[in-house]
Write a protein that binds this DNA or RNA. Structure first.
Lengths: 221, 221
DNA sequence: TAGATTGTTAATCGATTAACAATC
DNA sequence: TAGATTGTTAATCGATTAACAATC
Protein backbone atom coordinates (compact mmCIF):
# COMPACT_ATOMS: atom_id res chain seq x y z
CA UNK A 1 0.00 0.00 0.00
CA UNK A 2 1.58 3.31 -1.07
CA UNK A 3 2.11 5.64 1.83
CA UNK A 4 -0.27 8.47 1.00
CA UNK A 5 1.61 11.69 0.47
CA UNK A 6 1.39 14.13 3.32
CA UNK A 7 0.95 17.78 2.53
CA UNK A 8 2.05 20.74 4.60
CA UNK A 9 -0.81 21.65 6.92
CA UNK A 10 -0.24 25.42 6.76
CA UNK A 11 -0.24 25.17 2.97
CA UNK A 12 -3.46 23.16 2.99
CA UNK A 13 -5.11 25.77 5.17
CA UNK A 14 -4.19 28.49 2.71
CA UNK A 15 -5.79 26.76 -0.27
CA UNK A 16 -9.32 28.12 0.31
CA UNK A 17 -7.92 31.64 0.54
CA UNK A 18 -6.17 31.21 -2.81
CA UNK A 19 -9.41 29.95 -4.25
CA UNK A 20 -11.31 32.95 -2.94
CA UNK A 21 -8.83 35.43 -4.37
CA UNK A 22 -8.64 33.62 -7.70
CA UNK A 23 -12.41 33.74 -8.00
CA UNK A 24 -12.26 37.47 -7.29
CA UNK A 25 -9.68 37.89 -10.04
CA UNK A 26 -11.80 35.82 -12.40
CA UNK A 27 -14.87 37.92 -11.64
CA UNK A 28 -12.78 41.02 -12.37
CA UNK A 29 -11.86 39.57 -15.76
CA UNK A 30 -8.18 39.06 -14.95
CA UNK A 31 -6.89 35.99 -16.82
CA UNK A 32 -3.54 35.76 -15.03
CA UNK A 33 -2.52 35.70 -11.37
CA UNK A 34 1.04 36.22 -10.16
CA UNK A 35 2.61 35.08 -6.92
CA UNK A 36 3.12 38.68 -5.72
CA UNK A 37 -0.59 39.43 -6.24
CA UNK A 38 -1.75 36.31 -4.40
CA UNK A 39 0.86 36.94 -1.72
CA UNK A 40 -0.52 40.37 -1.00
CA UNK A 41 -4.08 39.06 -0.84
CA UNK A 42 -3.10 36.43 1.75
CA UNK A 43 -0.55 38.60 3.54
CA UNK A 44 2.23 36.08 3.03
CA UNK A 45 5.45 35.93 1.02
CA UNK A 46 5.40 35.41 -2.74
CA UNK A 47 7.83 32.52 -2.37
CA UNK A 48 5.35 30.73 -0.12
CA UNK A 49 2.71 31.14 -2.79
CA UNK A 50 4.94 29.51 -5.42
CA UNK A 51 5.81 26.69 -3.00
CA UNK A 52 2.16 26.10 -2.21
CA UNK A 53 1.14 26.05 -5.85
CA UNK A 54 4.05 23.78 -6.70
CA UNK A 55 2.79 21.40 -3.99
CA UNK A 56 -0.48 20.85 -5.81
CA UNK A 57 1.22 20.57 -9.18
CA UNK A 58 0.23 23.92 -10.62
CA UNK A 59 2.54 25.32 -13.27
CA UNK A 60 2.98 28.95 -14.19
CA UNK A 61 4.77 30.88 -16.89
CA UNK A 62 7.93 32.78 -15.94
CA UNK A 63 7.40 36.48 -16.45
CA UNK A 64 3.64 36.01 -16.78
CA UNK A 65 2.19 34.16 -13.81
CA UNK A 66 -0.50 31.50 -13.48
CA UNK A 67 -3.60 31.22 -15.64
CA UNK A 68 -6.51 31.88 -13.28
CA UNK A 69 -9.10 29.44 -14.56
CA UNK A 70 -6.96 26.29 -14.70
CA UNK A 71 -5.57 27.16 -11.30
CA UNK A 72 -9.05 27.40 -9.78
CA UNK A 73 -9.79 24.01 -11.28
CA UNK A 74 -6.55 22.58 -9.95
CA UNK A 75 -7.22 23.72 -6.40
CA UNK A 76 -10.85 22.62 -6.43
CA UNK A 77 -9.82 19.20 -7.65
CA UNK A 78 -7.02 18.98 -5.13
CA UNK A 79 -9.38 19.78 -2.27
CA UNK A 80 -12.04 17.48 -3.67
CA UNK A 81 -14.56 20.31 -3.48
CA UNK A 82 -16.07 19.60 -6.87
CA UNK A 83 -18.18 16.73 -5.65
CA UNK A 84 -19.72 17.65 -2.31
CA UNK A 85 -18.75 15.83 0.85
CA UNK A 86 -21.76 14.96 2.93
CA UNK A 87 -21.76 15.29 6.71
CA UNK A 88 -23.98 14.90 9.74
CA UNK A 89 -24.08 17.58 12.42
CA UNK A 90 -24.74 16.81 16.07
CA UNK A 91 -25.89 19.44 18.55
CA UNK A 92 -28.31 22.17 17.53
CA UNK A 93 -27.55 24.77 20.15
CA UNK A 94 -26.66 28.31 19.11
CA UNK A 95 -23.48 27.34 17.30
CA UNK A 96 -24.80 24.19 15.62
CA UNK A 97 -27.87 26.07 14.42
CA UNK A 98 -25.69 28.87 13.06
CA UNK A 99 -23.56 26.39 11.12
CA UNK A 100 -26.68 24.81 9.64
CA UNK A 101 -27.69 28.25 8.40
CA UNK A 102 -24.26 29.14 7.05
CA UNK A 103 -24.54 29.29 3.28
CA UNK A 104 -20.78 29.63 2.82
CA UNK A 105 -20.24 25.90 3.32
CA UNK A 106 -21.57 25.29 -0.16
CA UNK A 107 -18.47 27.00 -1.52
CA UNK A 108 -16.43 24.37 0.29
CA UNK A 109 -18.39 21.53 -1.20
CA UNK A 110 -19.72 20.66 2.25
CA UNK A 111 -23.28 19.48 2.44
CA UNK A 112 -24.82 18.90 5.86
CA UNK A 113 -27.59 16.48 5.08
CA UNK A 114 -28.96 15.86 8.56
CA UNK A 115 -28.73 17.26 12.07
CA UNK A 116 -29.16 15.46 15.37
CA UNK A 117 -29.94 16.34 18.95
CA UNK A 118 -31.30 14.56 21.92
CA UNK A 119 -34.98 13.81 21.58
CA UNK A 120 -37.84 13.74 21.58
CA UNK A 121 -37.95 15.45 18.20
CA UNK A 122 -41.25 15.63 16.28
CA UNK A 123 -41.07 13.97 12.86
CA UNK A 124 -40.51 16.43 10.07
CA UNK A 125 -38.61 18.96 12.18
CA UNK A 126 -36.02 20.98 10.27
CA UNK A 127 -33.42 23.58 11.21
CA UNK A 128 -32.60 25.99 8.39
CA UNK A 129 -34.08 23.42 5.98
CA UNK A 130 -31.90 20.60 7.28
CA UNK A 131 -33.89 17.68 8.72
CA UNK A 132 -33.42 17.14 12.45
CA UNK A 133 -33.46 13.70 14.07
CA UNK A 134 -33.07 12.15 17.47
CA UNK A 135 -29.43 11.19 18.01
CA UNK A 136 -30.54 7.61 18.58
CA UNK A 137 -31.14 7.43 14.85
CA UNK A 138 -27.61 8.57 13.99
CA UNK A 139 -26.16 5.10 13.70
CA UNK A 140 -28.85 3.79 11.44
CA UNK A 141 -28.84 6.79 9.12
CA UNK A 142 -25.03 7.09 8.94
CA UNK A 143 -24.79 3.47 7.87
CA UNK A 144 -27.61 3.75 5.42
CA UNK A 145 -26.37 6.99 3.80
CA UNK A 146 -22.68 6.06 4.02
CA UNK A 147 -21.73 9.18 5.96
CA UNK A 148 -18.12 9.41 7.14
CA UNK A 149 -17.90 12.99 8.39
CA UNK A 150 -19.41 14.35 11.59
CA UNK A 151 -19.63 17.92 12.87
CA UNK A 152 -19.64 18.06 16.65
CA UNK A 153 -21.42 21.02 18.28
CA UNK A 154 -22.70 19.53 21.54
CA UNK A 155 -21.93 20.98 25.00
CA UNK A 156 -18.33 20.34 26.07
CA UNK A 157 -19.21 17.80 28.70
CA UNK A 158 -21.12 15.64 26.24
CA UNK A 159 -18.44 15.81 23.54
CA UNK A 160 -16.48 12.68 24.42
CA UNK A 161 -19.44 10.34 24.68
CA UNK A 162 -21.19 11.64 21.58
CA UNK A 163 -17.96 11.40 19.59
CA UNK A 164 -17.48 7.79 20.65
CA UNK A 165 -20.93 6.94 19.44
CA UNK A 166 -20.27 8.72 16.16
CA UNK A 167 -17.14 6.65 15.64
CA UNK A 168 -19.10 3.56 16.56
CA UNK A 169 -21.55 4.48 13.82
CA UNK A 170 -18.83 4.55 11.18
CA UNK A 171 -17.71 8.18 11.32
CA UNK A 172 -14.05 8.51 10.31
CA UNK A 173 -13.56 12.29 10.42
CA UNK A 174 -14.82 14.68 13.08
CA UNK A 175 -14.92 18.46 12.90
CA UNK A 176 -14.89 19.35 16.57
CA UNK A 177 -16.36 22.72 17.63
CA UNK A 178 -16.23 21.91 21.36
CA UNK A 179 -13.46 22.83 23.80
CA UNK A 180 -12.86 19.17 24.62
CA UNK A 181 -9.87 17.34 23.14
CA UNK A 182 -11.32 14.07 21.88
CA UNK A 183 -9.80 10.82 23.10
CA UNK A 184 -10.43 8.46 20.21
CA UNK A 185 -8.60 5.73 18.29
CA UNK A 186 -5.52 6.99 16.45
CA UNK A 187 -7.02 6.37 13.03
CA UNK A 188 -9.89 8.80 13.52
CA UNK A 189 -9.29 12.09 11.71
CA UNK A 190 -9.93 15.13 13.87
CA UNK A 191 -10.03 18.85 13.26
CA UNK A 192 -10.59 21.06 16.25
CA UNK A 193 -11.84 24.62 16.01
CA UNK A 194 -9.90 26.10 18.88
CA UNK A 195 -11.78 29.33 19.59
CA UNK A 196 -10.33 29.64 23.07
CA UNK A 197 -6.82 29.19 21.68
CA UNK A 198 -7.35 31.84 19.02
CA UNK A 199 -8.74 34.20 21.61
CA UNK A 200 -5.74 33.53 23.86
CA UNK A 201 -3.38 34.67 21.12
CA UNK A 202 -5.49 37.74 20.45
CA UNK A 203 -5.84 38.79 24.07
CA UNK A 204 -2.19 38.28 24.97
CA UNK A 205 -1.15 40.35 21.98
CA UNK A 206 -3.67 43.07 22.70
CA UNK A 207 -2.55 43.28 26.31
CA UNK A 208 1.08 43.62 25.17
CA UNK A 209 0.13 46.34 22.71
CA UNK A 210 -1.87 48.26 25.29
CA UNK A 211 1.11 48.13 27.65
CA UNK A 212 3.33 49.50 24.88
CA UNK A 213 0.92 52.33 24.19
CA UNK A 214 0.75 53.09 27.89
CA UNK A 215 4.53 53.35 28.04
CA UNK A 216 4.61 55.69 25.07
CA UNK A 217 1.91 57.83 26.67
CA UNK A 218 3.80 58.10 29.93
CA UNK A 219 7.01 58.98 28.13
CA UNK A 220 5.38 61.84 26.31
CA UNK A 221 3.83 63.28 29.47
CA UNK B 1 11.08 50.84 25.01
CA UNK B 2 11.61 47.15 25.90
CA UNK B 3 10.83 44.85 22.99
CA UNK B 4 7.85 42.94 24.31
CA UNK B 5 8.64 39.25 24.62
CA UNK B 6 7.11 37.11 21.92
CA UNK B 7 5.64 33.78 22.90
CA UNK B 8 5.31 30.70 20.75
CA UNK B 9 1.92 30.85 19.05
CA UNK B 10 1.25 27.09 19.22
CA UNK B 11 2.05 27.22 22.94
CA UNK B 12 -0.29 30.16 23.43
CA UNK B 13 -3.08 28.30 21.68
CA UNK B 14 -2.65 25.35 24.02
CA UNK B 15 -3.03 27.42 27.19
CA UNK B 16 -6.84 27.30 27.35
CA UNK B 17 -6.73 23.52 26.97
CA UNK B 18 -4.34 23.26 29.92
CA UNK B 19 -6.66 25.46 31.89
CA UNK B 20 -9.63 23.29 31.07
CA UNK B 21 -7.89 20.08 32.07
CA UNK B 22 -6.50 21.62 35.25
CA UNK B 23 -9.98 22.73 36.26
CA UNK B 24 -11.18 19.18 35.67
CA UNK B 25 -8.41 17.84 37.90
CA UNK B 26 -9.26 20.42 40.53
CA UNK B 27 -12.93 19.46 40.46
CA UNK B 28 -11.86 15.83 40.85
CA UNK B 29 -9.92 16.79 43.96
CA UNK B 30 -6.49 16.09 42.47
CA UNK B 31 -3.95 18.53 43.95
CA UNK B 32 -1.11 17.69 41.55
CA UNK B 33 -0.82 17.56 37.76
CA UNK B 34 2.08 15.95 35.92
CA UNK B 35 3.29 16.61 32.41
CA UNK B 36 2.37 13.08 31.24
CA UNK B 37 -1.20 13.57 32.47
CA UNK B 38 -1.59 16.95 30.80
CA UNK B 39 0.10 15.60 27.69
CA UNK B 40 -2.43 12.83 27.35
CA UNK B 41 -5.32 15.23 27.82
CA UNK B 42 -4.06 17.47 25.04
CA UNK B 43 -2.73 14.65 22.85
CA UNK B 44 0.75 16.12 22.74
CA UNK B 45 4.16 15.14 24.09
CA UNK B 46 5.00 15.52 27.80
CA UNK B 47 8.12 17.48 26.88
CA UNK B 48 5.98 20.03 25.08
CA UNK B 49 3.92 20.43 28.22
CA UNK B 50 6.99 21.17 30.31
CA UNK B 51 8.27 23.61 27.69
CA UNK B 52 4.92 25.39 27.59
CA UNK B 53 4.69 25.67 31.36
CA UNK B 54 8.28 26.83 31.57
CA UNK B 55 7.39 29.56 29.08
CA UNK B 56 4.87 31.11 31.45
CA UNK B 57 7.19 30.71 34.41
CA UNK B 58 5.43 27.82 36.15
CA UNK B 59 7.62 25.65 38.35
CA UNK B 60 7.02 22.04 39.29
CA UNK B 61 8.55 19.55 41.65
CA UNK B 62 10.68 16.77 40.17
CA UNK B 63 9.07 13.42 40.88
CA UNK B 64 5.81 15.09 41.90
CA UNK B 65 4.50 17.39 39.21
CA UNK B 66 2.82 20.78 39.32
CA UNK B 67 0.44 21.98 42.02
CA UNK B 68 -2.91 22.40 40.28
CA UNK B 69 -4.28 25.50 41.95
CA UNK B 70 -1.24 27.77 41.60
CA UNK B 71 -0.88 26.59 38.02
CA UNK B 72 -4.46 27.56 37.20
CA UNK B 73 -3.76 30.95 38.70
CA UNK B 74 -0.56 31.30 36.74
CA UNK B 75 -2.20 30.55 33.41
CA UNK B 76 -5.20 32.78 34.09
CA UNK B 77 -2.90 35.63 34.99
CA UNK B 78 -0.71 35.00 31.99
CA UNK B 79 -3.69 35.10 29.65
CA UNK B 80 -5.12 38.10 31.43
CA UNK B 81 -8.44 36.26 31.81
CA UNK B 82 -8.96 37.31 35.41
CA UNK B 83 -10.21 40.73 34.50
CA UNK B 84 -12.56 40.50 31.55
CA UNK B 85 -11.65 42.02 28.21
CA UNK B 86 -14.54 43.87 26.69
CA UNK B 87 -15.35 43.68 23.01
CA UNK B 88 -17.84 44.87 20.43
CA UNK B 89 -19.31 42.47 17.90
CA UNK B 90 -20.36 43.53 14.41
CA UNK B 91 -22.75 41.51 12.27
CA UNK B 92 -25.69 39.70 13.82
CA UNK B 93 -26.34 37.05 11.19
CA UNK B 94 -26.47 33.40 12.16
CA UNK B 95 -22.89 33.20 13.32
CA UNK B 96 -22.75 36.55 15.12
CA UNK B 97 -25.98 35.75 16.94
CA UNK B 98 -24.63 32.35 17.95
CA UNK B 99 -21.48 33.94 19.37
CA UNK B 100 -23.59 36.41 21.35
CA UNK B 101 -25.40 33.45 22.88
CA UNK B 102 -22.26 31.43 23.58
CA UNK B 103 -21.87 31.26 27.33
CA UNK B 104 -18.40 29.69 27.08
CA UNK B 105 -16.79 33.06 26.37
CA UNK B 106 -17.17 33.97 30.02
CA UNK B 107 -14.59 31.29 30.84
CA UNK B 108 -12.18 33.16 28.60
CA UNK B 109 -12.81 36.43 30.33
CA UNK B 110 -14.41 37.79 27.18
CA UNK B 111 -17.33 40.08 27.59
CA UNK B 112 -19.21 41.26 24.53
CA UNK B 113 -20.84 44.41 25.73
CA UNK B 114 -22.54 45.54 22.55
CA UNK B 115 -23.45 44.28 19.11
CA UNK B 116 -23.86 46.23 15.88
CA UNK B 117 -25.55 45.77 12.56
CA UNK B 118 -26.79 48.01 9.81
CA UNK B 119 -29.89 49.88 10.83
CA UNK B 120 -32.52 50.92 11.38
CA UNK B 121 -32.56 49.23 14.77
CA UNK B 122 -35.31 50.08 17.27
CA UNK B 123 -33.96 51.48 20.55
CA UNK B 124 -33.73 48.86 23.27
CA UNK B 125 -33.19 45.91 20.91
CA UNK B 126 -31.08 43.10 22.37
CA UNK B 127 -29.68 39.83 21.05
CA UNK B 128 -29.20 37.19 23.74
CA UNK B 129 -29.29 40.02 26.28
CA UNK B 130 -26.58 42.02 24.50
CA UNK B 131 -27.74 45.46 23.38
CA UNK B 132 -27.83 45.94 19.61
CA UNK B 133 -27.05 49.25 17.93
CA UNK B 134 -26.81 50.71 14.47
CA UNK B 135 -23.23 50.43 13.23
CA UNK B 136 -23.19 54.20 12.76
CA UNK B 137 -22.98 54.45 16.54
CA UNK B 138 -19.94 52.18 16.74
CA UNK B 139 -17.40 54.97 16.65
CA UNK B 140 -19.04 57.02 19.33
CA UNK B 141 -19.57 54.11 21.71
CA UNK B 142 -16.12 52.57 21.18
CA UNK B 143 -14.48 55.85 22.08
CA UNK B 144 -16.73 56.46 25.03
CA UNK B 145 -16.35 52.96 26.49
CA UNK B 146 -12.67 52.61 25.54
CA UNK B 147 -13.19 49.43 23.55
CA UNK B 148 -10.15 48.06 21.71
CA UNK B 149 -11.33 44.65 20.55
CA UNK B 150 -13.78 43.95 17.75
CA UNK B 151 -15.40 40.71 16.63
CA UNK B 152 -16.15 40.70 12.93
CA UNK B 153 -19.09 38.54 11.75
CA UNK B 154 -20.38 40.46 8.75
CA UNK B 155 -20.79 38.96 5.26
CA UNK B 156 -17.46 38.41 3.52
CA UNK B 157 -17.94 41.19 1.00
CA UNK B 158 -18.53 43.78 3.73
CA UNK B 159 -15.60 42.66 5.88
CA UNK B 160 -12.93 44.99 4.55
CA UNK B 161 -14.97 48.18 4.76
CA UNK B 162 -16.41 47.44 8.18
CA UNK B 163 -12.98 46.53 9.51
CA UNK B 164 -11.54 49.81 8.26
CA UNK B 165 -14.24 51.72 10.07
CA UNK B 166 -13.60 49.72 13.23
CA UNK B 167 -9.92 50.64 13.08
CA UNK B 168 -10.91 54.22 12.45
CA UNK B 169 -12.95 54.05 15.65
CA UNK B 170 -9.95 53.01 17.72
CA UNK B 171 -10.14 49.23 17.49
CA UNK B 172 -6.67 47.68 17.81
CA UNK B 173 -7.48 43.95 17.73
CA UNK B 174 -9.92 42.19 15.41
CA UNK B 175 -11.22 38.65 15.73
CA UNK B 176 -12.17 37.91 12.14
CA UNK B 177 -14.83 35.28 11.50
CA UNK B 178 -15.13 36.11 7.80
CA UNK B 179 -13.34 34.40 4.91
CA UNK B 180 -11.73 37.68 3.88
CA UNK B 181 -8.10 38.39 4.69
CA UNK B 182 -8.14 41.91 6.10
CA UNK B 183 -5.89 44.53 4.50
CA UNK B 184 -5.14 46.88 7.39
CA UNK B 185 -2.20 48.78 8.85
CA UNK B 186 0.58 46.52 10.10
CA UNK B 187 0.03 47.49 13.73
CA UNK B 188 -3.52 46.16 13.88
CA UNK B 189 -3.69 42.78 15.65
CA UNK B 190 -5.70 40.19 13.74
CA UNK B 191 -6.89 36.68 14.48
CA UNK B 192 -8.68 34.88 11.70
CA UNK B 193 -10.95 31.92 12.29
CA UNK B 194 -10.18 29.98 9.15
CA UNK B 195 -13.11 27.58 8.92
CA UNK B 196 -12.53 26.91 5.24
CA UNK B 197 -8.87 26.14 5.94
CA UNK B 198 -9.72 23.74 8.72
CA UNK B 199 -12.25 22.06 6.52
CA UNK B 200 -9.69 21.77 3.72
CA UNK B 201 -7.36 19.82 6.01
CA UNK B 202 -10.19 17.60 7.16
CA UNK B 203 -11.56 16.83 3.72
CA UNK B 204 -8.17 16.16 2.11
CA UNK B 205 -7.32 13.76 4.92
CA UNK B 206 -10.68 12.04 4.78
CA UNK B 207 -10.40 11.59 1.03
CA UNK B 208 -6.94 10.05 1.47
CA UNK B 209 -8.24 7.71 4.16
CA UNK B 210 -11.20 6.62 2.08
CA UNK B 211 -8.84 5.85 -0.81
CA UNK B 212 -6.71 3.75 1.54
CA UNK B 213 -9.74 1.84 2.78
CA UNK B 214 -10.83 1.30 -0.80
CA UNK B 215 -7.43 -0.17 -1.66
CA UNK B 216 -7.59 -2.51 1.32
CA UNK B 217 -11.09 -3.58 0.33
CA UNK B 218 -10.02 -4.37 -3.22
CA UNK B 219 -7.01 -6.33 -2.05
CA UNK B 220 -9.13 -8.54 0.14
CA UNK B 221 -11.66 -9.28 -2.60
C1' DT C 1 16.43 43.29 -25.40
C1' DA C 2 14.64 44.62 -20.78
C1' DG C 3 11.61 43.71 -17.09
C1' DA C 4 9.09 40.49 -14.56
C1' DT C 5 8.12 36.12 -12.74
C1' DT C 6 8.68 31.12 -12.20
C1' DG C 7 10.90 26.97 -10.28
C1' DT C 8 14.34 25.15 -7.38
C1' DT C 9 18.25 24.77 -4.35
C1' DA C 10 20.19 26.55 -0.12
C1' DA C 11 19.86 29.06 4.29
C1' DT C 12 17.34 30.43 8.17
C1' DC C 13 14.08 30.19 11.63
C1' DG C 14 11.13 28.10 15.01
C1' DA C 15 8.77 24.18 17.06
C1' DT C 16 8.88 19.53 18.44
C1' DT C 17 11.27 15.63 20.14
C1' DA C 18 15.27 13.29 22.41
C1' DA C 19 18.47 12.74 26.13
C1' DC C 20 19.80 13.05 30.71
C1' DA C 21 21.40 15.05 35.10
C1' DA C 22 19.09 16.91 39.16
C1' DT C 23 15.52 16.37 42.43
C1' DC C 24 11.50 14.92 45.04
C1' DT D 1 16.89 3.69 48.16
C1' DA D 2 13.92 3.19 43.99
C1' DG D 3 10.73 5.17 40.93
C1' DA D 4 8.96 9.12 38.84
C1' DT D 5 9.16 13.63 37.12
C1' DT D 6 11.21 18.20 36.31
C1' DG D 7 14.28 21.45 33.89
C1' DT D 8 17.50 22.15 30.32
C1' DT D 9 20.67 21.33 26.57
C1' DA D 10 21.10 19.17 22.12
C1' DA D 11 19.15 17.05 17.94
C1' DT D 12 15.63 16.69 14.65
C1' DC D 13 12.05 18.10 11.87
C1' DG D 14 9.36 21.13 9.03
C1' DA D 15 8.08 25.67 7.35
C1' DT D 16 9.46 30.08 5.83
C1' DT D 17 12.61 33.02 3.60
C1' DA D 18 16.66 33.99 0.53
C1' DA D 19 19.09 33.59 -3.74
C1' DC D 20 19.36 33.03 -8.49
C1' DA D 21 19.38 30.72 -13.02
C1' DA D 22 15.87 29.85 -16.52
C1' DT D 23 12.16 31.63 -19.10
C1' DC D 24 8.38 34.37 -20.91
Amino acid sequence: MPKSQVFSIPALKRMPAYLRELRNLQRAGRPQATSPILAQALRIDAISVRKDLEMIGAIGSPGIGYAVEPLIDKIENFLGWKNASEAFLVGTGHLGTALLGFRGFEDYGLKIIAAFDKGPIPAGTTVHDVPLFDFSEFRHLAGRLQIHMGILCVPDDAAQEVAEQMVDAGIIAIWNFTAHTLQLPENIIRQKVNLAGDFAVLSVRLAARLRELEVVKEETV
